[in-house]
Design a binder for these strands. Structure first.
Length: 575
RNA sequence: UGCCCGAUGGUGUAAUGGUAGCACAAACGACUCUGACUCGUUUUGUCUAGGUUCGACUCCUAGUCGGGCAGCCA
């Protein structure tokens, strides 16, 4: 059958991070390469995460290593179990058949369960105590407001907290009482003792623990103090034996802190190291969990998995194959340059994948009836249609040509523009897989609207017929009017009208009002058997897939994944 | 006016001191029972100024421009 050819044939990807890993492999620095993908379960994963997943799992895959999916769940007030579920499903879908054998699972707990930073709250607390004992962390009584004031500014040093010089014994006592729940939220915090005058803001005695009397989705009421990202992340990496901790550019400033914490603890095993790359920016797309949440909350879209959303769930529902997303990630590369990727790169990867794999079908989105007056009303001419011309040995299926057919309204023009080689009055066109037909008559209603076309079929031009080789300029798609099914078809367009929707900070103002058009289409009956994970090319139109969520037996709903490239539509011809 | 990161055709990305290449996009052409696919051709690039060197996209210095950093978010 069809292969995922670009992936199989392409050389292994190379980028500055993989270069570093390759060097470490060459010098045998680690027994095994272990990476991790650490989303916070506070939203759905999007295409930017897909880039990171492909990087982290790709490195594991290329080096016979492992990549851990880890919920970075240290903030109970923002995280939900629903997101844990969706993230797990999305990651597994994206890597299935590609890197699923590199996915690390925690050894305890339910089978197939991802890692949780919150599973390390115990060890993390012990590490914090250890830091206090070394005199490198202290309990600070400054309120959030004063903590901020004492921190200074990027161009102005901060001032030492008055609690910075507390004794180890007092710090130990206070930290234990924080854990015991003796103080309200925000009353105290645990801070690293580094340097309030550092030019790096993240080294000005950053907070390690804050008090939060809140239930956690994974640990319940076990804790009322929660570690912050910087403390939890490096140590979670260490605990899991991560070798390369890959994150995005905004964490570059945090790297000295990442190293400081690990080095301060004088840990026995090899330490993980952090490497940073530029996150994805995509034209006409929002790639920010916070803003995507806004689209959901304000009902601009119908949910996180709305097919217009750049979420992995949305793209999947739209019909984008996982392999296309992987190909896209491969094509855009990994650098430290903050770039804006053209959506055309994504669209190309989708079309390339779908062209290889999608079954061809006939469907008419905006039908106009054509009566072939020389055909009998009660008989069908059986024709053979190719399922996928890209296959090495393409298979066929029958389609019925009948006296009444539907053709696409766009494929007829009473007054054709120049170079229009579709149907026009008195003109000829081939009905794909059937025969050449001629338009004899245009029927209009009282208002002048075209309601029907009449023509004749030249059956001698059928496949196997004596005049099969007769050429006409145009070939159009069609379905039998008496042997077709109806289905709802959702035609999606880009969600935003601006290449950089949030360039002015008002992305909601650039939502495309025509991002969704719903039509009732006429489809060939074979589509009745469409499968939820099936990919179909409606010939000359685009790629479609069944909407797994809204389709029911007898009431099918198709989503347009992407249209075919259309150089005719782009031409500046008057229409 | 502090620290950090970056800059190669329209876009993205290679070249790690030795021929500036690839992909996308665009334009044109061939083919076509999908105006698709495929194939062919073409256009366009090393931020600036110095320096090192036989030789600089690459190394050094200064500048310019862009991005990040002042959550008890991650």
């Amino acid at each position: 059958m069809t292969v995922e050819h670009p992936e199989a044939a392409a050389p292994a990807p190379a980028d500055f991070i993989r270069d570093i890993v390759a060097q470490h492999v060459a010098e045998k620095r680690y027994a095994k390469i272990v990476t991790r993908f650490p989303p916070e379960p506070n939203g759905y994963l999007h295409i930017g995460h897909a880039k990171s997943i492909c990087l982290n799992f790709g490195i594991a895959r290329e080096n016979h290593g492992q990549c851990n999916l880890r919920m970075d769940d240290t903030n109970p007030t923002k995280e939900e179990i629903e997101y844990v579920r969706s993230i797990t499903a999305d990651v597994q879908w994206l890597i299935a058949g590609w890197a699923d054998d590199c996915l690390g699972f925690k050894t305890s707990g339910a089978a197939g369960e991802p890692y949780f930073a919150s599973d390390y709250f115990g060890p993390l607390y012990d590490f914090a105590v250890s830091l206090v004992q070394k005199g490198q962390a202290y309990v600070c009584d400054l309120s959030p407001k004063y903590t901020e004031a004492y921190r200074g500014a990027p161009d102005r040093p901060g001032r030492d907290s008055p609690f910075r010089t507390r004794s180890v014994a007092e710090n130990l006592d206070l930290f234990a009482r924080m854990k015991a729940g003796e103080f309200p939220d925000g009353a105290r915090s645990l801070r690293a003792k580094i340097d309030m005058a550092s030019p790096n803001m993240w080294l000005r005695d950053p907070l390690l623990y804050r008090i939060r009397h809140a239930a956690h989705h994974h640990t319940g009421d076990a804790w009322c103090i929660y570690p912050l990202y910087d403390f939890a992340h490096c140590l979670s990496d260490y605990l899991e034996g991560i070798t390369h901790s890959i994150c995005t550019l905004e964490f570059v400033d945090h790297r000295p802190l990442y190293d400081w914490i690990l080095e301060s603890l004088a840990l026995p095993r090899a330490l993980p190291h952090q490497y940073e790359f530029a996150k994805l920016n995509l034209g006409y797309t929002i790639v920010s969990k916070r803003k995507l949440l806004q689209l959901v909350q304000e009902k601009v879209v119908q949910g996180w998995d709305d097919p217009r959303m750049p979420t992995i769930a949305g793209l999947r529902r739209r019909g984008v194959p996982a392999a296309a997303l992987r190909q896209f990630a491969y094509n855009i590369g990994v650098t430290k340059f903050d770039s804006l990727t053209d959506v055309a790169v994504l669209e190309h990867a989708i079309r390339e994948q779908l062209n290889q794999t999608a079954q061809r079908r006939l469907g008419v989105l905006k039908p106009i009836k054509l009566v072939l007056t020389n055909l009998p009303a009660d008989e069908a001419v059986m024709c053979q249609a190719t399922n996928n011309p890209q296959d090495e040995a393409p298979t066929l299926r029958p389609v019925a040509l009948t006296r009444e057919v539907y053709i696409e309204a766009d494929d007829f023009a009473e007054v054709p523009p120049p170079k229009f080689f579709r149907l026009k009055p008195g003109g000829e066109v081939r009905l794909k897989y059937a025969c050449i037909i001629k338009c004899d008559e245009v029927i209009k209603d009282a208002t002048g609207r075209i309601i029907e076309l009449r023509g004749t079929a030249d059956l001698t031009t059928r496949t196997g017929g004596p005049n099969v080789d007769r050429k006409v300029k145009g070939t159009i798609h069609w379905v039998s009017a008496t042997r077709c099914i109806e289905a709802e078809v959702r035609l999606y367009d880009r969600l935003f009208t601006a290449a950089e929707p949030d360039a002015d900070g008002e992305f909601l103002k650039h939502v495309n009002p025509r991002s969704l058009e719903v039509v009732t289409a006429k489809l060939e009956p074979a589509l009745r058997e469409a499968q939820p994970d099936g990919r179909y090319q409606f010939e000359r139109l685009g790629y479609f897939t069944l909407d797994a969520k809204d389709s029911q037996a007898g009431r099918l709903v198709f989503n347009r994944t992407i249209s075919l490239k259309d150089t005719w539509a782009k031409a500046p011809a008057p229409k």
